[in-house]
Write a protein that binds this DNA or RNA. Sequence first.
DNA 1: TGTATATTGAAAATCATTATCAATAAGGAT
DNA 2: ATCCTTATTGATAATGATTTTCAATATACA
Lengths: 143, 143
Amino acid sequence: MKLSKKQVFLDFAAAKGLKSTRQRDIILDCFLSLPQHLSTEELYLKLRESNPGIGYATVYRTLKLFAESGIAREIQFGDGQTRYEHLHVGEHHDHLVCTRCGAIIEFENETIEKLQREVADQHGFIIQNHKLELYGVCAACNR
Amino acid sequence: MKLSKKQVFLDFAAAKGLKSTRQRDIILDCFLSLPQHLSTEELYLKLRESNPGIGYATVYRTLKLFAESGIAREIQFGDGQTRYEHLHVGEHHDHLVCTRCGAIIEFENETIEKLQREVADQHGFIIQNHKLELYGVCAACNR
DNA sequence: TGTATATTGAAAATCATTATCAATAAGGAT
DNA sequence: ATCCTTATTGATAATGATTTTCAATATACA
């Protein structure tokens, strides 16, 4: 059975000798309960609603830990803000980004992934991860 | 016959009513003579070697114009700096980025592009451009 | 309970980029 | 050639996101 993201992070923290803190627990629960692609600031504002005491720096630090632990991934859509999305180990998806309304649609395509691996092989390159984003106008915007 | 990038930019500038300036000419020549994927700062430093008078802001402004004119494209590899690469109209390539030595290898794959268009079609999405980067360890580094 | 160490929050610092603005340069009109 | 309008420049200040600093506090374990 697959471990929950929460457990994955707690294991990571334990292995790294991190102490468990109230703030990290709160941020973890909040992060997991919210939708994908949140920017640090969005999460911070959300957190403040129920926990006014939490500092900006702590949110930044904690999100970086999430990324390091593998339960989240940093993404950038060119708007100058780093966003974080949930991530199961081994899971991967790519994005359609609407340049008009900002909507983000996720997709997966195993054929594309296979071709990527072939390209990498041809160059003797070992892929760790990848990023694929298609920018354009979404269905709702182009009518 | 295909227009040179230099001519493409000059046409763009003329159409936009921009005045031609010594600085822009210098920056254009320098940019075109240097390799791909230069950051603004790298180009700025290179320029200063032969033209100490050119200001930082001018380099930023001019590179933005290059991107607007279509002869260059902004790319970001997650290191916090915007880079610019040369671009012929209609030309497109993707990147293998070595996370160990920082090497950037370009590739093109028409099959992947076709699949991308299919994915977009399925979502009623009109692609304007795309970004595909494979991060990993290059051949030179993994031996 | 004591102690070593990780963590926190507030504020200052940093880094890349952008805006401001007075001085200058270009390109046409006269 | 000179005037005039407008774009451009460079220095500097401002911005916005992220990081660092550091003293105070909390945690884990002996």
